[in-house]
Each structure stands twice: as C-alpha cells, then as structure tokens.
Computed example of a mutant assay.
Amino acid sequence: MSQTTTFSVDGMTCGHCVQHVTTELTAIPGVRDVSIELVNGGSSPVTVVSDEPLTDAAIAAAIDEAGYALTPKGSLL
C-alpha cells in the first residue's frame, strides 16, 4: 500500500531547484512520485508517494543533500 508524505522546503526559487530536490527524494528507496508546488523564495509544499512510510531522517538528509532546508513544523512561512 502506498504512503503519502507532505512537508515543505525553504528557499527554492526556480525549476532547477525543484529538479535538485526531486532527484534527491527519488533516490530514497521506495519513492515512486514527487510533486512540488514552487513558492519562489518561500516555503514550497512537497508531496512524496512511496511504497512504505519515510523516516524524517531520510527526508531531511535528501533535502540537505540537495542544498535546501525543511520548513520547521509549525512555521508560518
């Protein structure tokens, strides 16, 4: 059964940024789809569909590897 995980990423400004984040997230085993709604310079919503639940550590590592930061939970960005 597939799992959907939603979170936000800070600082993306263009399609190239989206591509970097998508590439790193799809490298996580089990990830089937990544959808990003770009908010230029703000907090961009990201939805990931995977075969099993993703750990917060795996998501954070992928976002960090792409050169961006997760929006802290509860942030108003």
Results as ranks from 00 to 15, higher is better:
residue 30 G to L: 12
residue 28 I to V: 10
residue 31 V to D: 10
residue 76 L to H: 04
residue 4 T to W: 11
residue 21 V to F: 10
residue 3 Q to E: 12
residue 54 L to A: 07
residue 63 I to R: 03
residue 58 A to F: 03
residue 1 M to E: 06
residue 55 T to G: 08
residue 53 P to E: 14
residue 10 D to Y: 08
residue 14 C to W: 02
residue 23 T to A: 09
residue 21 V to I: 14
residue 7 F to K: 03
residue 59 I to D: 10
residue 45 P to Y: 07
residue 38 L to H: 04
residue 47 T to P: 12
residue 59 I to T: 05
residue 66 A to V: 10
residue 44 S to E: 12
residue 19 Q to Y: 05
residue 75 S to V: 11
residue 40 N to C: 08
residue 66 A to W: 13
residue 53 P to K: 07
residue 51 D to G: 08
residue 27 A to N: 10
residue 39 V to C: 05
residue 17 C to E: 04
residue 5 T to C: 14
residue 25 L to Y: 13
residue 26 T to R: 08
residue 3 Q to P: 00
residue 21 V to Y: 13
residue 60 A to W: 12
residue 67 G to Y: 12
residue 7 F to E: 03
residue 56 D to E: 12
residue 48 V to L: 13
residue 76 L to R: 10
residue 55 T to C: 07
residue 22 T to I: 01
residue 33 D to Y: 06
residue 67 G to L: 13
residue 25 L to A: 02
residue 39 V to Q: 12
residue 32 R to V: 14
residue 49 V to A: 12
residue 32 R to E: 15
residue 70 L to A: 03
residue 24 E to G: 02
residue 51 D to V: 04
residue 14 C to L: 01
residue 30 G to V: 11
residue 71 T to C: 06
residue 38 L to D: 09
residue 75 S to A: 15
residue 16 H to I: 02
residue 21 V to D: 05
residue 50 S to W: 15
residue 61 A to R: 10
residue 63 I to Y: 10
residue 48 V to D: 08
residue 54 L to M: 09
residue 8 S to T: 07
residue 4 T to G: 02
residue 73 K to H: 11
residue 73 K to W: 15
residue 63 I to W: 09
residue 76 L to A: 00
residue 6 T to D: 10
residue 59 I to M: 05
residue 4 T to E: 12
residue 62 A to E: 11
residue 32 R to S: 13
residue 6 T to P: 00
residue 74 G to K: 05
residue 64 D to W: 01
residue 38 L to F: 05
residue 14 C to P: 02
residue 41 G to D: 05
residue 70 L to P: 03
residue 51 D to M: 08
residue 33 D to G: 00
residue 23 T to F: 15
residue 19 Q to S: 13
residue 40 N to R: 13
residue 54 L to G: 00
residue 47 T to V: 11
residue 37 E to H: 08
residue 17 C to S: 01
residue 37 E to Y: 05
residue 76 L to G: 07
residue 31 V to E: 07
residue 64 D to P: 01
residue 58 A to C: 01
residue 72 P to C: 13
residue 67 G to A: 12
residue 49 V to C: 03
residue 3 Q to A: 07
